[in-house]
Design a binder for these strands. Structure first.
Lengths: 123, 123
DNA sequence: TCGCATAGGGATAAATTTATCCCGCTGACA
DNA sequence: TGTCAGCGGGATAAATTTATCCCTATGCGA
């Protein structure tokens, strides 16, 4: 596993939240799990742009951070189900707020992001 | 400027928010500007862990994304002031929610993060 | 018997983000 | 005259995060 060389900043609440939700797909994972998609393969289908490897890895971090818990069924093929912990559930309203803001400003955001994209060369 | 090779995912509100606030210091920058610290040098002092270069760069992205606006005073030495746009202000309650969650669970978060850290080798 | 579904994680290459260093500008002040 | 304030951004190195590829395991159905 990768070992950080630079220590994280943990001054305020924002720093702390950042440590647990900063990850390309983490917020979406929490949200989809909240919606009832509990199995890795389901989540993978909900987020096809993410590689299986990364989803698995971020799920593990969420678990380490006690936001989700994992149940492994001893069957073949393997079956695993994630669910929000009570702690994780307290984060849902906040994530909902983020999503609502995004939805509320969808048109504008989409336009702004695609306008002078940081990811395309043609000006 | 860096040109992305992988296109961003823009399916739902969460994806859209992510595009504009995903950056190591962006949320904190928005918050501190909201608190009235408007000059780059002030922000730098508030966030000493960030390099001047990155703050400047992330401020520019926030500006491109219309969350903050910039006023340049034609004086020497240069004087610049950032402030939230009306659009940016709508994001403040959401950021506040994040910060509050972090503050509310500060002790637990600190413990979890430092427990089996992904950034230290000693088990 | 062959291949699939399902989940995890090692190894390694890319992609992306941050950190460092450095240059330029030009009044004010010691 | 030498130095500093304060901001921006180029160039390049590091750090960190993601993407790819691959192997393991085992009942079930074609």
């Amino acid at each position: 596993m990768y070992e950080r060389k630079i220590q994280p900043t943990l001054n305020c609440g924002l720093d702390l939240v950042g440590e647990v939700i900063y990850g390309k797909w983490k917020i979406r994972l929490l949200w989809f799990i909240h919606e009832g998609h509990q199995r890795p393969s389901e989540l993978q289908r909900k987020i096809p742009d993410a590689s299986r490897r990364v989803l698995s890895s971020q799920l593990k971090e969420l678990e380490d951070h006690e936001l989700i818990s994992k149940v492994i069924y001893p069957v073949v093929p393997p079956k695993v189900e994630y669910s929000l912990t009570d702690f994780g559930k307290t984060l849902i309203p906040v994530i909902a707020a983020l999503g609502n803001w995004g939805d509320a400003h969808e048109e504008r955001l989409r336009s702004i992001i695609l306008k002078r994209p940081h990811h395309l060369s043609t000006p």
